[in-house]
Write a protein that binds this DNA or RNA. Structure first.
Lengths: 197, 197
DNA sequence: GGCCTAAACGCAAATATTTTGCGATAACAA
DNA sequence: TTGTTATCGCAAAATATTTGCGTTTAGGCC
């Protein structure tokens, strides 16, 4: 049961949540992970541990909550002039951010969440929304753009998989993924190669 | 510090490890995850908790250790006659196994491991080895076969990503991934579309 | 086979954590 | 303003984790 649906989001609750999140972020930056414990967080946030336990349930849910907040992109993806270069730029930047220690850790915290809120799904949706803005931008320019699911399979999945399980992808590799995707799309336009999930 | 390099793998240690692993597996099958605790495991395995703490460190490492044992494939991938159908059959079966609750949970346990042993990397290597046997089999038949990294990007990563973050891929989707990979491979033979990680 | 050394275990005390009951506070609505 | 109740703080109880120390036993060596 991650951050419960705050039915009373006013002053005090908001202050507590902000203080706890800030405490987690500072601890993540300063100390080793094995020392990040709920009493330690409560201490730094000037709250009692029981408050955190009641509101977030356990450490995994709290970390997943903080990770979800941090993984949210600041703004719209960069506009570089063309659909392909937009996607390539996005992929390179995303890979670089998520390949860092904090990025990889955010992903792990998100996957460790056991709440019914489907946190990993929300994380995936955030990326999907970014892709949709790229798609709309391409449509506004009358440019072709790959199918959303094809992007998830062809660009996002390889980047995330490599970061989580192997070596992070190089910039060149990210560009090659985008290149291959556009090449395939051009080849069989509106093709059936990637149908519904 | 996951399962320490057992410097004395003889009788007693082996018995303890087997009992603990068995206890974890039975608990995973029976009770809710929130009830799986080290004292509970120790209880069922007829061991003292301190033994588990000293040998595995914490619950996450123990669960990752058990998951790594379970994720190891039983034997060689099925031989279906051709390289493409071999890969398709492997992908479909792998997706089905890992999309189950236990499969998804194994992946999460593996990613939650913080030991220096690089458990996620080992997990990735297991898949790579399976792909190598398929490649060798194809070579023995003088069949073309995609590059290993292209398979990881084009087939394994999308399957695992979807299982972890979204809806598990359908059989048709798995087949389509393999189909697209072979089509691309044929198009630019020995091409540069997927260079080193 | 019998002996030695140290790794691995069991036990129990010491710490740390999580959970829970209850009274106090403060957000929100009427 | 007043009432209602979600949320919080505090402290006791329940659990889980760590640690010291004596015992067992695997593996090496005569």
């Amino acid at each position: 049961m991650s951050p419960k649906p705050v039915s009373r989001p006013g002053g005090r609750s908001a202050r507590v949540q902000a203080a706890v999140h800030a405490a987690v972020r500072s601890l993540l930056a300063e100390v080793d992970r094995s020392e990040i414990t709920i009493p330690a967080i409560a201490d730094r946030a000037k709250v009692t541990p029981s408050t955190i336990y009641r509101r977030w349930g356990d450490l995994a849910e709290l970390l997943a909550d903080v990770a979800m907040e941090r993984i949210r992109p600041d703004g719209e993806p960069q506009d570089t002039g063309s659909a392909k270069s937009d996607l390539a730029a996005w992929a390179e930047q995303y890979a670089e951010e998520m390949a860092s220690d904090v990025g990889r850790q955010m992903y792990r915290d998100i996957l460790a969440s056991r709440s019914g809120a489907n946190i990993p799904g929300q994380c995936c949706d955030i990326v999907r929304r970014q892709m949709l803005t790229l798609a709309e931008r391409a449509a506004g320019r009358s440019e072709a753009f790959p199918d959303l699911e094809a992007i998830m399979d062809g660009v996002v999945a390889p980047i995330v998989y490599r970061i989580l399980f192997a070596e992070p992808p190089s910039q060149e590799h990210c560009r090659a993924l985008v290149e291959a995707l556009f090449a395939e799309r051009r080849r069989r336009d509106g093709g059936v190669s990637r149908d519904a999930a």
